[in-house]
Every structure is written in structure tokens, then in C-alpha cells.
Amino acid sequence: MEHTEHLEHTETPSDMKSQIWKTFWILLGFTVVDIVLYFVLLSTHAMWKNWVFIILGVVKAYYIVGVFMHMKFERKALMYTIVLPMVFVIFFVALMLIEGDFTNILRWLK
């Protein structure tokens, strides 16, 4: 009976369909923006450039998980259960980039 449960939250099938297609165009649009930005910012070395791409990636991920994987319509509890552990990954990534950078300094600058 999950599906009936879901239908409580969502609208009619045609609304659902239009939402899916809307998401598709958004994803496609962001991918195109990604590529264009890549060439626009090619000679830039600043840190914020990486952040631009990462944020765009996270936005795309939001749409995939939210709409395609139906997370937007699930209970908040499930959402937090799945999304919050990702904090550990972010922590891990941050530390490993710092450490990689430190290795870089030890290796090439000393």
C-alpha cells in the first residue's frame, strides 16, 4: 500500500509526469551550464571555481534524489536518516583534502 500512501502527497499522474520532465530539463540545463562555465573559467585558478562546480553538482544531486528518487515526498525522518550520515563523508573529504595538500607541500616544496 505504499503507493497509495505516496499518492496522498503527490498530485495527479499528469502533474507527476510534468514534474519529472521539468526536472529533466533542469538537470540538462545545469549540465550545459557546467560545460560552458568550464571553458569560461578555464584560465582561472581561484578556489571559488571549484566551489561553483561542486555547488552545481549538489543542486543536480538534490533534484535526482528529491524528485527521481522520490525523497521530497517521503517522511522527513527517512530523509534525515539517509542524508545526515553524509556529514561524515563531507568531514572525511575535507580532512583528506587538507592532508593531500600537506603531502603536496612535503613532497614538492621541501
Binding site: F88, F91, L95, I98, E99, F102, L106
Partner: peptide, 21 residues
């Protein structure tokens, strides 16, 4: 337990800042 694993590696020559964290 997920944010302390590096205490097994204090003397691997890692960044002292990470050591503090």
C-alpha cells in the same frame, strides 16, 4: 567514532592541525 580515526596515525607525519582535530 566517525570523526576520530586519525588518532591511530598521529605519528605518520600527518598535518599537525589534523592531529589537533
Amino acid at each position: 567514532s566517525f570523526i576520530v580515526w586519525g588518532h591511530h596515525m598521529f605519528i605518520t607525519g600527518m598535518n599537525p592541525f589534523l592531529g589537533s582535530v
